[in-house]
Design a protein around this nucleic acid. Structure first.
Lengths: 205, 205
DNA sequence: TTGTATAGAGACTTAATGGTCTGTTTAACC
DNA sequence: GGTTAAACAGACCATTAAGTCTCTATACAA
């Protein structure tokens, strides 16, 4: 195996395992040694590839987390169908992984923001950048939906995006509680209710 | 000063300062020494009154946090007026303190849940108990609103409560980002939009 | 006034963790 | 096949933080 390939493979392995542990136990509660133990690697390997734990984590955000956001929250809502339907299905799927206690973006990001807010500006900046990407894409999708006659023209797309992001991040925090499945079901019902209030109604044309 | 009074005064001082620091820097990121330094007290004083850092924090939840939830999120929505108006004003006020970067319940709780989830079951139980109190009171208020003809009778009060809690917790996480004031404004507008979709409409009677 | 329990001071112990440093192995290249 | 640099091992260091222990001071009862 060529060196550059080997380098990338090792770094990738570290990041995947790192993200998993950070997700499960939090950043400050996960030591570099925890990650290395899981991979049977040594401190030497880690600090050969990364400057610091912080540098390591920033690379995880910019690689793995951003990619996950695209695949779970952005790509599913692209297309020319009714964006409200697309978003509904997208949230439904994303929350379903949460029900099964899998690693999901919503909780991860809300966790991480909570953990780093006011403590680490560097990491916070990278996290809020990810949020911004999600937000911009939501707004774009909603505006397109307005243009294509799915959403009422009086609707404030930025406002809807904010409301959607809020509720999604919040429901994930609540789902750590008891009965995540029931919580999800109720949440989705209310989301549909809310969407009914912003869709373009035939009689109002 | 009598001893029992002195004891309570000291414990109260510790808890108030402890909560403030935990809120600002997180639980794991705040050391017992940080709190004691702020108060010019010693380790001896701390471990004379509390068994452990965890015991200390549980008492903070059961005293200070629960009380704050009552005063900020429960008492303001009691009464016989339109519960949707009461909730709107209550959220508006609660988020306003957040805009000014004051210590507010929403973010604190979502922060703490994020921080302790999967790490400390004892503390998590006490935190979810607080959430439960909030939820029960929200549901009760909504049901009363239905009974008094403010809310459509087809509305699922548990669902609305879940949705409200989600969005509130989520918006607080988002407000750590840039422009919290603008975020709040948009959020409140969408909340009103959502409420319009569940209120009892005169023509539908 | 004096004995006793309460309240508190602060040095110390123990364990964990981020990061460094030196040495060794492996792979690429001539 | 030998040189060189990348990749990794792991002992070690410095710091931090929770919790302990011993000693002192203060308040209250007799």
């Amino acid at each position: 195996m060529s060196n550059s390939i080997k380098r990338m493979a090792t770094m990738q392995r570290m990041q995947v395992t790192g993200l998993e542990l950070f997700y499960k136990k939090g950043y400050y509660n996960t030591s570099v040694d925890d990650i290395l133990k899981e991979l049977s690697l040594s401190k030497g390997a880690f600090y050969y590839h990364y400057d610091s734990k912080e540098d390591f984590f920033v690379q995880i955000i910019d690689n793995l987390i951003v990619r996950r956001v695209y695949s779970m929250l952005i790509e599913p809502i692209e297309g020319h169908d009714n964006p409200l339907d697309l978003i509904t299905n997208c949230f439904d799927n994303a929350l379903e992984t949460a029900v099964h206690n899998e690693m999901d973006f919503g909780f991860m990001l809300s966790n991480l923001i909570a953990e780093f807010n006011g403590k680490n500006d560097t990491i916070m900046k990278h996290l809020t950048d990810v949020l911004k990407i999600w937000e911009v894409n939501l707004v774009t999708t909603l505006q397109k939906g307005k243009f294509n006659g799915f959403i009422d023209r009086h609707v404030d797309c930025e406002g809807v995006a904010t409301y959607l992001m809020s509720s999604f991040i919040g429901i994930r925090t609540l789902m750590t509680d008891v009965a995540p499945s029931a919580r999800k079901y109720r949440f989705m019902a209310q989301l549909r209710q809310y969407f009914k209030s912003i869709e373009l109604k035939p009689e109002s044309v």
